[in-house]
């Protein structure tokens, strides 16, 4: 019989936090930027099918970094929660604050329960209002903490470097094209120099207040993205990208031809 080692609660929590943080830091960053007509999300994501930015409800969107299967489960739960609430009450009764709260409780419970591994994810939940002053952006961390984000926010691997770049150059009330260019160059910024991310590796979406339909979430298609970005010089793909693409997209038990949600376990995205 062996005796289990004593581990202090402080050490236990620290280990779990380190584990989650390491997983998140492996991935590429996601940027959220407030602009004149709404909120912009940009991420570097070579996959066209496995999204990091998604619609939750009329005025609410979701962005995530970390393990794909974990944030995908949270995304689906958010869509179900929002649709069920909107159906049983009214569309107006679905709020970003309520959703952020539900996510915070979920992540917090998972983080502090001994039985489950902590989620290696961080989330943005954004909701646009009638004007830029009414826009709300929440950042949720792996342990269930919620922070209010003003003007811009960054999560993921190189968050500090990208945030520093945005801090110097962000201005309130920017037009969409300016905001997209700023966010894209911020993602390409590293301490060793700047690179031009290829158009096809960018996932860009907006919550657009000026849209006349009730659902304000719009994915920026490649043609429009090229128009918004203008001339940027030759693209320099990330040297790690080819290596990342070689990561098998799905577990051995699910055939590769299946759509993302077909199996019991969703496939794991490349960490990029």
């Amino acid at each position: 019989m062996s005796m289990p080692f004593y581990v202090s609660p402080e050490q236990l929590m620290k280990d779990r936090a380190d584990y989650a943080r390491k997983g998140i830091a492996r991935g590429r960053s996601v940027v959220v930027v407030q602009y004149a007509d709404g909120v912009l999300f940009v991420s570097e994501n070579p996959s066209q099918a496995l999204h990091k930015v998604s619609e939750i409800y009329d005025r609410i969107a979701f962005a995530a970094v970390g393990r794909y299967n974990e944030f995908e489960n949270l995304r689906i739960a958010g869509v179900r929660l929002a649709d069920m609430r909107g159906y049983s009450y009214d569309r107006r009764d679905v709020t970003g604050r309520g959703l952020a709260n539900a996510y915070a409780q979920t992540l917090g419970t998972i983080f502090s329960s001994g039985g489950e591994k902590p989620y290696e994810v961080e989330l943005f939940v954004a909701e646009i209002g009638e004007s830029a002053a009414d826009d709300q952006i929440y950042r949720l961390t792996y342990d269930g903490q919620v922070a209010d984000v003003q003007r811009y926010g960054v999560m993921g691997g190189a968050a500090d470097v990208v945030a520093g770049y945005l801090e110097e150059r962000y201005s309130d009330g920017a037009q969409l094209a300016d905001a997209v260019r700023l966010a894209v160059s911020a993602l390409g910024h590293t301490e060793d120099g700047d690179r031009v991310i290829p158009d096809d590796d960018l996932e860009v979406a907006i919550l657009d207040r000026t849209r006349t339909q009730p659902r304000k979430f719009v994915r920026i298609v490649p043609a429009r993205l090229r128009q918004l970005l203008g001339e940027r010089g030759p693209a320099e793909p990330n040297p790690e990208r080819d290596m990342e693409r070689s990561v098998p997209p799905a577990g051995p038990e699910s055939p590769p031809s299946q759509p993302p949600m077909a199996g019991d376990e969703p496939p794991v995205a490349p960490p990029g």
Binding site: E72, N73, L74, I76, A77, R80, L81, D83, M84, R85, Y87, S88, T95, G98, L99, N101, A102, Y103, Q105, T106, T109, M261, D264, E265, P266
Partner: peptide, 27 residues
């Protein structure tokens, strides 16, 4: 069930299970 939607508790585990894309089936 609906009274505690967004009510400050953890999202029920059944919401996190991938599978159906139909809202009617989920309801």
């Amino acid at each position: 069930m609906t009274s505690d939607l967004f009510g400050g508790a953890r999202i029920p585990a059944s919401f996190m299970v991938p599978g159906t894309s139909s809202f009617t089936d989920f309801l």
